[in-house]
Nucleic acid binder design. Structure first.
Lengths: 183, 183
DNA sequence: TAAAGTACTTTACACTGTGTCAATTGACAT
DNA sequence: ATGTCAATTGACACAGTGTAAAGTACTTTA
């Protein structure tokens, strides 16, 4: 999955890689989608996303939460990129895959909302945004597709991604961050 | 295609809708992908994208080009959303579809580059960006996936999308656009 | 030592959707 | 009358998912 970015990974390929017959997979997973979904869940658990994202919230100011969170995310996405692509591909046709995807994205959104609220608590949220709108926007900016476009297609390194997205986010959301912050 | 967003649209569905046998489609298009690609091309031609996007370039200042272009784009995407989704779905597995998609996205990128260069000519580009980076970023912000996320998933209206993306883009790219511009 | 259970295997097949092929039909032009 | 064009019908190959049945090897229980 990780190598192939989820494409052209058939049940028979997975079975072969696991050294098991294709039919044996159906003894453990009722469908290809279920296998994908479970793999996602397992991967998140092993990697300890929950814990890592909660740690970002510990930063003292809203802006620092934003900075920490973007750094975490930029480095986390490559770990899940392969399976995410696979899930994304079946999501269009498969209810359960769509639900699993939405669940994951919901977690991301929660983190975005927390971040924006932390900035607002500090009275640092740029006045043109409501919390809701700013959350929508930050959530969209941090989408996996955007990460993909910037790193894979535009050739940005992960650290470039992190720095530029931090810069952009500050300029968009933080009051008085006009032209001054240089990365 | 437009109604179903490209999903579950089989060759037999298209044939039925056209009042023709499934096999007859293969007399005109060598494969489903070719049909999709040709439909995209035809659609763009009928809608006169070329002309409409060139008209945006006529704006007197770079910032006005940016504003006009985002307005054009925000209103244009819904017209092509269905077929774009269909193309996007097959792009992962199909060489030709990927090429067609990249071609369309290349056009968008050209427009982004033109816009950024126009802003730079006016000495209004925020100093932390090079033309290349700013183009990558604007191109990413204007992606169809972002449009989809904000309008379809977050429920923004098209005019909201246009106004907020204009605001965001100005704040990111234009010098001295700190916290002041209110939509 | 026998019975039951577990985990898997092999083989076969149903189903969907794409794409190919061959023989046929009807309309129109020369 | 002949040829050609566009489309038709029907059959079929292929890939990939998912189901079903019968068999094997090993483990647990009693």
């Amino acid at each position: 999955m990780e190598e192939q970015r989820g494409q052209g990974v058939r049940m028979s390929d997975i079975a072969a890689a696991a050294g098991v017959s294709r039919q044996a997979l159906y003894l453990h997973f009722s469908s290809r989608t279920e296998l994908l979904v479970e793999t996602t869940r397992y991967g998140d658990e092993v990697r300890g996303v929950e814990e890592r994202s909660i740690r970002c919230r510990a930063a003292p100011t809203g802006v620092e939460v934003l900075t920490a969170y973007i750094e975490f995310w930029g480095n986390y996405v490559p770990e899940i990129y392969g399976i995410a692509k696979a899930l994304l591909a079946v999501r269009e046709t498969d209810e359960a895959a769509a639900a699993a995807w939405n669940d994951r994205m919901g977690m991301l959104r929660d983190c975005c909302r927390y971040t924006i609220e932390a900035i607002q608590r500090d009275k640092m949220l740029a006045p043109e945004w409501t919390c809701e709108e700013a959350t929508d926007l930050l959530w969209t900016i941090l989408s996996i597709q955007n990460w993909e476009q910037l790193t894979v297609e535009c050739g940005w390194s992960i650290s470039q991604y992190v720095v530029w997205i931090q810069t952009v986010s500050r300029r968009i959301f933080v009051q008085g961050e006009g032209t001054r912050s240089k990365p």
